[in-house]
Design a protein around this nucleic acid. Structure first.
Lengths: 215, 215
DNA sequence: ATTTATTTTTAGACAAAACTAAAAATAAAA
DNA sequence: TTTTATTTTTAGTTTTGTCTAAAAATAAAT
């Protein structure tokens, strides 16, 4: 599998989670910053390799083989992110790009040894689950902070949006995975929340609350 | 710089150490397992990018820019090898191939953080020196075991040949970097050595002694 | 149920990095 | 110093992954 093929498989995997009936050409092109015609070409190749099932104009889905490949790529990406943050001291907004490269390193032995070295983590620095060596993904129970009842306490377990801007905002507000969040009040008009995070009172917009997972 | 370009630069660097006046096309082709014509094509490209100085039929040398790039690739390769052995528990005969991939990961910040994480090692698992962030290579004093006086003690600091076969032989004989080697006797006829390694008496062919560095 | 708009696919072209086969330059040998 | 052998380069293809522009299929709107 080439790097390009792996990138397509990965993108189809992520899009499948939202549209499991079939991923359309334009969506893939958008994610990969390429043209629809290039996607069509690649779908033929991936179909020949039995990684996707594809019929003209009908969108694509991953085959079992494709799904497994996708999970292994995601596994590598997320394990490398853990390594970068936990061992090398990168911050969580810096690791995605580097992991995009590292995820294409081939050795299976490498990734399993890395997994062990990191202590078999179940989630990456953004709270996303890490598939195990067999591709099994342990589901992480979580709710959006925007959908949680008032006056209860949770801890922060992940982010939905992992853009640099959002992560830097969280850093600025000293919100990290593991932080204790208590919802004090919710404004009816615009759903702005008043919360207490690690003891500190804070006002949070609905957009923020809608991108923060708690448990 | 593409992966292919980096591989050419690296090979030219290694060949330059042996033939500093200019590296010939066929030698490069041999190392990269490609054809001379492909090498010629690439030399033009690298020359346009001011990474090598190249004139038809006269061989190539690295420019300052090319030399620096080469050292950075070697730096990455060797630091990743240290990581694989020291942190992930690979044996020294398993790491070359994986490091061949890892050496092409782009981030400079990554490699400097990795360097710090590993404690700024000066040599890789085979005893080869690791260029620092500026490209400076600390020369490691060493002699071949085959060229050393009798009845003196040394410690093993590196291998000249790092092929799997040789490394596995060393493992079998329990010879590792750091082992204490004392030359007891040398056979005049075929230069076979009788040595004591970490206290154990051993007979070693000239070929072996000729690929083991001591200090 | 047509027409219009959007999406997707085809067809043909291009750049990168490789190849083969033939030509040219250099080196070695007679 | 010619001749022969070797090395290197050129010229022309191939493959991979991309592109543009045009055609075809599907979806949306009148």
């Amino acid at each position: 599998m080439t790097i390009s093929e792996e990138n397509y498989i990965k993108v189809i995997y992520h899009l499948s989670l939202v549209s499991p009936k079939g991923v359309n050409t334009n969506a893939i092109a958008g994610m990969l910053d390429t043209k629809a015609s290039s996607v069509t070409d690649m779908m033929k190749k991936l179909s020949d390799k039995d990684l996707v099932s594809y019929q003209k104009y009908q969108g694509v889905t991953l085959t079992d083989k494709g799904l497994h490949s996708a999970k292994m790529i995601v596994r590598k990406h997320r394990l490398w992110e853990v390594f970068l943050v936990d061992k090398l001291g990168f911050s969580w907004d810096e690791v995605h790009e580097i992991a995009e490269e590292l995820e294409h390193i081939k050795s299976e032995q490498l990734i399993n040894k890395l997994d062990a070295f990191l202590g078999f983590p179940v989630a990456d620095p953004h709270g996303d689950p890490i598939p195990d060596a067999k591709g099994v993904i342990k589901k992480i129970e979580k709710q959006l902070l925007s959908e949680v009842e008032i006056n209860a306490s949770f801890h922060c377990v992940g982010v939905k949006d992992s853009s640099t801007d959002f992560l830097k905002y969280l850093d600025k507000q000293k919100i990290a995975l593991g932080s204790i969040v208590k919802v004090i009040d919710k404004e009816d008009f615009d759903d702005t929340l008043t919360v207490e995070i690690d003891g500190k009172r804070l006002t949070i917009s609905n957009k923020i609350a809608n991108n923060l997972y708690v448990q």
